[in-house]
Design a binder for these strands. Structure first.
Lengths: 353, 353
DNA sequence: ACACTGGATGTAATCCATTACATCGGTGCT
DNA sequence: AGCACCGATGTAATGGATTACATCCAGTGT
């Protein structure tokens, strides 16, 4: 009896050091092979109930936790999807992410989030990081990205879907809504109320935020279409209340006497509203204001904000479904244009009340 | 010349199938061993510049991306930290997470987020999931958790820090602030303004949310201390505007004629304020209202909300630093009690104006 | 009684990067 | 010359789970 080699070596790891138990420890304790342990976990039907029981007990006793890195390495699949959004501080994206998380988890995947702070270079970094870490697919916001990111995605063939945008050509997967059309609807509405002097508070277009650009373009084209006001009455700022106030100040300082203001975001609108209040400008009597996004808060400020409801959660759900489909080889390049709709509350009226 | 075995086999993978390149492919192309490739990436000083150059070119040419699962498996470290928060829809946690992300990334780690929707059972699931996936440490919210989660953490010895709470005993790592003391300060302030009839709009305590419980306890003890009003004037609801409105209705329906209301969250306060406006109750003349958290929106509603500023971002930064320290074996059980401070705006005044 | 089938289980290769250890050529010292 | 040493590189073991393939055994059909 030279030595019971097999039973001695694993024992070292499972008892002496307290480092995590492995399949081998479990196998030894349950008197089976590692293959059987693995099968007990992943295909219980292939294992006799009696043996299954023994293995389960061993797992229990050792507090065995499978090592997902090893599994991912072997199976070449991590079941995680990278989700890259501009920020979570804007409630819209927080909701979007929540919907993504919910749907992915229902499909047996899970999200790994990262934020870019609206910086396309950061976005490119995050994309490569997520890819290296084994993301099986990506959910991105917007369709414009840095050339580095674009070529990386093309070169690796990593599946991804874009959101909050539309793709007129329908090549890549895109789940979103039409920013231009939505703003068009707003301008139409204001025009039908009789407004002829309409300005816009827009998000920053300089960093190639295509949602902001789309909304601004929608404004320009709509204003042209109606032959009203000036397409260059556009004031930009980040999506914060403070910046909305400043943008309204800038507008007034330039002596523009608009009767209505279209905003690229509810935050800008709320800021504008604040500034009006501070200056004694009555909304909607002296000035109509329309927001965008329909954040929870929009319904609860005074007066309740007229705005555009966007299908954030629905988008998140569909994007999650789409990326999982792509990962599983279903070739359908998912493409959806979801409807938006105006929610008319109390910050809009005809000019003069 | 039997065969150049070594150069033939890897070629199969790098050219025929288009699956990702590995160190071996790079090594072959650069005419070096895999060890040298690895060193070029992780310890360039050990490699002659000339060789380094060759390897870099090969990496470039093949679009080689290291497989992090393999690295994690071998090194037994993933450099990721699990972050478990109740929800992102509440802006406070979104900010917290942003600070965590920023600090972790500065330290060469990265966060993997998951949300619980305030459910401790879900929290337990997320904790085990993150652990299995290789989280090296966890950042959690609150100190109360399900027994399953608690015993799991104890059994595995996985490092973690709790936030948004304090640990009187200082055993575990806890980075937070004193909810009770903060509410105490609020009640003191109201009492010094002359209020004697004070009620509370609280978060739900039933699901063992220890922030809500701490704040409610603070209210009860402060009210007792001052010998004023009734400690059971507490109305609960989730942290939403809608629920704040309902809670205020419930309070009024019960015929309580409080002169001041302390809220467990700004959202509850905003809801209360809305309901006051709807019913013609003037704030602060007829009723003072104090929020909690000092969300961005608090300063921008009408009237601007008096509230308690909490150090969310600071907490996030410290928690990230602390968990990384713990992961690196520094034994200091981190413990910090950060200051909160009241921000007095325009929803508070003496009773009657 | 024999060959065969199929279910249950074991054996060992595999995924990919890292790294301990071995190797080799060259330098400097005695 | 001989020895120690060093820097650069290669060889091969390693981490943990999965899985293709081999093996064994009981049951079935003829």
């Amino acid at each position: 009896m030279p030595a019971k080699d097999k039973s001695i070596r694993p024992a070292r790891r499972s008892s002496v050091t307290s480092s995590a138990a492995t399949v081998r420890d479990v196998a030894n304790l349950a008197q089976v092979s590692t293959a059987t342990v693995s099968r007990t976990l992943n295909a219980p039907d292939l294992v006799r109930p009696e043996v299954r029981e023994r293995v389960s007990n061993a797992i229990q006793k050792l507090g065995y936790i499978p090592n997902d890195s090893a599994r991912a390495l072997r199976q070449n699949q991590t079941r995680f999807i990278g989700v890259v959004v501009p920020t979570l501080s804007y409630a819209l994206y927080a909701d979007f992410y929540a919907a993504v998380e919910e749907q992915l988890s229902a499909l047996g995947y899970f999200p790994v989030l990262s934020t870019t702070d609206y910086d396309l270079d950061v976005e490119a970094e995050q994309i490569t990081r997520l890819s290296r870490q084994g993301a099986q697919g990506l959910i991105l916001v917007g369709r414009v990205r840095s050339s580095r990111a674009a070529s990386y995605l093309a070169a690796t063939g990593l599946p991804f879907v874009s959101t909050y945008a539309t793709d007129p050509l329908g090549r890549d997967g895109t789940i979103g809504f039409d920013n231009e059309a939505a703003i068009n609807e707003v301008v139409n509405h204001l025009a039908s109320l009789g407004h002829r002097r309409i300005a816009m508070l827009s998000g920053l277009r300089s960093n190639l935020n295509d949602r902001a650009i789309g909304r601004a373009n929608g404004f320009i084209s709509a204003v042209r279409k109606h032959g009203i006001a000036s397409p260059d009455w556009i004031f930009e700022g980040p999506y914060t209340i403070e910046s909305g106030r400043r943008a309204l100040c800038a507008l007034l300082d330039r002596g523009i006497d608009a009767t209505a203001i279209v905003c690229g975001s509810d935050m800008l609108a709320i800021g504008g509203l604040q500034e009006c209040k501070a200056r004694g400008i009555r909304v909607p009597r002296d000035l109509s204001i329309v927001g965008f996004d329909d954040l929870e808060i929009a319904a609860h400020i005074d007066p309740p904000l007229t705005t555009v409801a966007v299908p954030s959660r629905e988008q998140g759900r569909l994007a999650a479904q789409a990326i999982v489909d792509l990962c599983n080889g279903r070739q359908c390049p998912p493409n959806a244009v979801l409807p938006t709709h105006m929610v008319v509350r109390e910050t809009t009226a005809g000019p003069g009340g």
